[in-house]
Design a protein around this nucleic acid. Structure first.
Lengths: 315, 315
DNA sequence: GAGGATCATCGTGAAAAGCGATTGTTCCAG
DNA sequence: CTGGAACAATCGCTTTTCACGATGATCCTC
């Protein structure tokens, strides 16, 4: 016996195990070599190297045209070696699948995006990659964290090491009970002292209200809730008006409600920016990269739609 | 994207996967290198090679003293890679166990050996190698085949590509009802025409009967059976005498039976040879090699015992 | 014994593995 | 804002390994 111990695992080479398996299946070094695209002498040396690794012969070579036969040690090596090769093939296949876009993606979102943008993005992503595993989470704590998410939709700046693309400028619109205001657009100062229902002070809301204040309009916030439907019900009930981003108005389909009317504001409040964030400096999975592309496309489509309906902040 | 496909499995190297795992655990190329006994630059190149194999980066390198982070692709590779490394370690361990003498051994045997020699061999083998898996089979067809057996006890020549060691010269003895013959040894020709019970014509039996015939002794075979106890019962019942090898007499403990007497034959019939066979040109497992050694030792012990009791063929 | 099939071995050129030293980033502390 | 520290990448360089083709050595068949 040579030495009892096997050098770590490192001395094993998958190539050698593959050669061994081929020899077993073909019954000869030469045919195995042909199958693998090697020379007979190469296979001979590969087997020799393998035998050095495991510390003993794995084949009995009867000499002459008789097929080589596996030794008991060789049987042990082969049994495990085949599993090893199978696992290696599984790895290669998993990598291929990953590169083709399968895999898991975790996306964080918030209400308007969940309703208007995400369904389309998810649909297209699933169409392109039927095997993918898309997970959404809509948690909106005080300070939204990107955590372990691959992508996060958010309408404000995010602290931490984060990169983003801007998807959409989402202008604020006034939603009032029909008859409250007249005209397509309403001067901002008409809202000074007016009753308003509004979102809680999360996300972009504080910035928007500051913009009002700077313009000298100080509406009376008579109710705050995050529920868009509740807000609109309150508007319908005459509790007050609402200043909501276009995306939310669109999501709630407020314009098709006869009891409501959607006005622009003059001058326009700077729109909130819908952004898609991810941790800086991290390589995206193909799935995440594609999701970003799709989100940008979908948002561009929405921007077109928006531009057809409203004049936008420029005019 | 570079290319979609991974070169067969061959491009993967366990070494690279081990390096990757170490980097993940250590958080830096340099510390991983130290743990593996490599240089930082070597690990760097190993990871680069791995990334070439899988077609994309497996780590994001933030630069500076921040720990490297695994990419989504890297996570896929790592997950499978760890399994691969575990399997490789399992192979190494299995080989070590094999070399230490664990494993399976298939032994073929026949009646006398099963009773007298094998129990001792098995006992010693199991004592030395508690983890071993010993399988015995006692099939005695017309032509005993070594088949898939590692070792085969047999008392005659075996055809096929077979090697063997002779364990024991097993002399034939006459077992008779007490009072049938007088004296320690009985002349062979006294058996001419005498009633005999005997084994069927398998194994060494035909050769032994031919030896009788050549010596001019033609006994009358009145009953044939392979069951030793049955034979001896017939002898006790006066049906006839039996000519059995010493090993069978020893196994049946015939000498301690007052109704029986064991005689030598004069001149002695050439003894049957108890041999241990295996397929020619095949490397033995350590277990099989040890089994042969033990069998030889045990047989030598029996030969000594035999020599003390009987004069043997020489005198 | 000649011929065929098989594996081992040898010598060679190309590829790579590993190393030490250097360079290029990035972050942090003064 | 400027060193310094920690880190990975890169560059030559040497040594080892890889794969090949050609040549032996061995065994079986005819």
């Amino acid at each position: 016996m040579t030495e009892g111990t096997l050098g770590p695992v490192s001395d094993l080479e998958l190539r050698h195990l593959a050669a061994m398996a081929a020899v077993v299946e073909e019954g000869s070094f030469g045919r195995a070599a042909a199958r693998l695209g090697y020379t007979q002498s190469t296979v001979s040396q590969q087997i020799a190297a393998l035998e050095r690794s495991v510390g003993g012969p794995v084949f009995d070579r009867p000499g002459g045209p008789r097929a080589v036969r596996i030794t008991p040690l060789g049987a042990v090596v082969l049994e495990h070696g085949r599993e090893l090769l199978a696992k290696a093939a599984a790895l290669a296949e998993a990598v291929d699948r990953f590169r083709a876009g399968d895999g898991r993606i975790d996306i964080g979102t918030f209400q308007s995006v969940s309703t208007v943008i995400l369904p389309v993005v998810v649909r297209r992503l699933r169409d392109e990659h039927p095997g993918c595993d898309i997970r959404l989470s809509e948690e909106e704590p005080e300070a939204p964290r990107i955590g372990d998410l691959d992508l996060l939709f958010y309408d404000g700046p995010l602290d931490g090491d984060v990169e983003h693309v801007k998807l959409l400028d989402d202008p604020y619109l006034l939603v009032a009970r029909r008859g409250t205001f007249s005209g397509r657009s309403v001067p901002l100062d008409r809202l000074d002292g007016a009753p308003l229902v509004a979102w809680p002070s999360t996300c972009d809301q504080p910035r928007m209200e500051e913009a009002f204040a700077r313009a000298g309009a100080n509406p009376k916030i008579v109710f705050r809730t995050a529920g868009n439907e509740t807000l609109l019900s309150m508007v319908r009930a005459g509790m007050g008006s609402a200043v909501l981003p276009w995306l939310a108005v669109h999501a709630a389909d407020a314009r098709s409600d006869d009891r409501l009317r959607v006005h622009e504001l003059r001058p326009a409040v700077p729109p909130r920016e819908i952004c898609l964030h991810w941790r800086a400096g991290r390589t995206h999975s193909p799935l995440a990269a594609r999701a970003i592309e799709i989100a940008v496309e979908v948002a561009a489509g929405l921007a077109d739609e928006l531009a057809l309906t409203y004049s936008g902040p420029a005019s």
